[in-house]
Design a protein around this nucleic acid. Structure first.
Lengths: 329, 329
DNA sequence: TTGAAAGCGATACCAG
DNA sequence: CTGGTATCGCTTTCAA
């Protein structure tokens, strides 16, 4: 592969000048520019990005850490982030943290060792303190779906509490009073927040919470399966079910079919996230929309602005969820 | 950040020696090694991967090009590939080709410009010739889900034809004779192959194909929706439906519910791929398993072996699909 | 607007 | 086993 040196020789200019037209940073006389471009074309020259990185101390790569690469949620997130950076000539390095603190820390180090210019983090297990220290270390990063005090300006989140409220409010407005709840793992921030919203809604409607109608699941389909089975066994009657996310709602729906519960006539079910597949269920799932693509885009823009100083004005930090009514409620 | 130079000074050895203990390539006396390691620890030294890449002409990065980052299929693929490389200390750069020839070519160039050591490609639109030329250019890459003559040793594929056969055979064995087919876009290789398998199965059972029972969809849910609607309108009776993939099967099932067709009593439905969500449907979808994770792993190993000369023996090229019987047939 | 030259932080070959 | 040193390909002052 041709180097910048050969281009400069062929064009009869200095290395520096070639570099200038490549990066088109400092004005170069039109004639010179054309000569250089002709030389580049003739040699089929393509800049060596590694050398560029070494010299400029910029890798043009952004590390993305998510819990899982599979799953409907992260796919959409990555998709949007990649598109955004690709358009800006940057590239994306991915890693999975699997909701494990050690792995998450590991991945962050890994990404750093790859000299990423910035990081987009979706971490659930490392604690706030670690993240604050990381911020102090000077590493540029944005946090997705998590609000950490002290570094709030790096957080792009969804108002999960509001979402939880909306879900339960919807059921209450439909007249339901005995509402069961299958939560995600309660050590996860978003699980807690969503549940908090649920409780607030109950309170606002003057409905007392029944502990027998609560189950802590795992955000997976099995959580919904086990959850509904458990709740039914308790014997406490309920006409509606709120699930911490769509996967669990899907599991619950499966159980409902098995035990012959009509949805929504005998049991109304609502999910959370509005994943791509929430309309695969039968009946189609009513849920709370998580604008994951927009959040990904916003995170990407944060990096573009803060790290690469691109002129980007509005940087929205907190997104508001929306109720999507389908057939399951 | 400390450099190798500072480490060498502190340890009282040469640059070269430090490099040796980092890469632990050539034997170094134990005592020296300890000194160097102590120095590295004291300085909190971490090698600069960009400098390493420039000097060694190896970036330790692998480019992955898939059609979409979203969707259940690619998520699993990426997940396994990332895990495999991560364990080997390599990292993964991702790009999306969106089934568009220009974009696919673009992405490949982009990945090359990022000096990836190797590429894993899931491309649908660029032609065979382009890929053969690319292979000649010396770029190491593996092809996923596509068999190209001339570079067969770089292909990791599923026997789609066999899968198509299995699906239809299953229905035939259950006594169905009027079997409708909703295909993926017929310009895609896998669509053709799956359909070919379907035809072969019909032939083997002495069943004539009815053109009125064929519909070309788009591999999306809407393809299934439009497909079944179209087929029903044709008026030709059929008791079973083969779909080119699970997404379309899901769409078809939705329509079946809407028009009051009992599944599987009045209409048996079978999909293809066994995506994560194929059991979200009601009834749970019978389908053909696409071992996407294994295929991803195999592709990663191909790279590990061919590019990084890791000792890996078995390199399986063609995977065999399996029938997964659930409730929809 | 252009050129010269000093790095950037490693690797790897050649001696010793 | 260890050291010296050329190199990798480009960016970036500093001068002119």
């Amino acid at each position: 592969m041709a180097t910048i040196y050969e281009v400069s020789k062929l064009a009869g200019v200095s290395l520096a000048t070639v570099s200038r037209v490549i990066n088109n940073t400092v004005p170069v006389r039109e004639a010179t520019k054309l000569k250089v471009e002709a030389a580049m074309r003739e040699l089929g020259y393509r800049p060596n990005s590694v050398a560029q990185s070494l010299a400029s101390n910029r890798s043009n790569s952004i590390g993305i850490l998510v819990s899982e690469l599979g799953g409907p949620f992260y796919g959409e997130l990555l998709s949007r982030i990649e598109a955004e950076f690709r358009a800006a000539g940057k590239h994306v390095i991915i890693a999975a943290g699997h909701s494990d603190a050690a792995l998450e820390r590991d991945s962050i180090e890994f990404l750093q060792s790859r000299s990423c210019d910035g990081l987009i983090l979706h971490v659930e297990s490392v604690d706030d303190e670690y993240l604050c220290k990381l911020a102090e270390s000077g590493l540029p990063f944005v946090l997705i779906n998590r609000m950490v005090e002290g570094i709030a300006d790096r957080c792009v989140t969804l108002d999960n509490e509001r979402g939880g409220y909306l879900a339960t409010e919807h059921l209450l407005q439909q007249g339901h009073r005995d509402i069961a709840y299958i939560a995600g793992p309660m050590w996860k921030h978003d699980s807690q927040e969503r549940y908090k919203g649920h409780q607030d809604a109950l309170k606002d409607f003057g409905v007392a919470e029944n502990p027998a109608l609560f189950f802590e699941g795992d955000f997976q389909e099995t959580g919904g399966v086990n959850g509904l089975n458990h709740l039914l066994k308790q014997g406490a009657p309920f006409s509606a079910l709120v699930c911490g996310n769509d996967e669990m709602a899907s599991g619950a729906i499966t159980v409902a079919h098995e035990v012959g519960l009509e949805i929504p006539e005998q049991l109304a079910v609502i999910g959370f996230d509005n994943i791509n597949f929430s309309h695969y269920t039968y009946p189609k799932l009513t849920t709370i929309d998580y604008p994951v693509a927009e959040i990904g885009q916003m995170a990407a823009r944060w990096i573009l602005k803060r790290v690469y100083h691109r002129p980007i004005d509005e940087l929205k930090a907190v997104f508001t969820p929306e109720l999507i009514v389908r057939d399951s409620t």
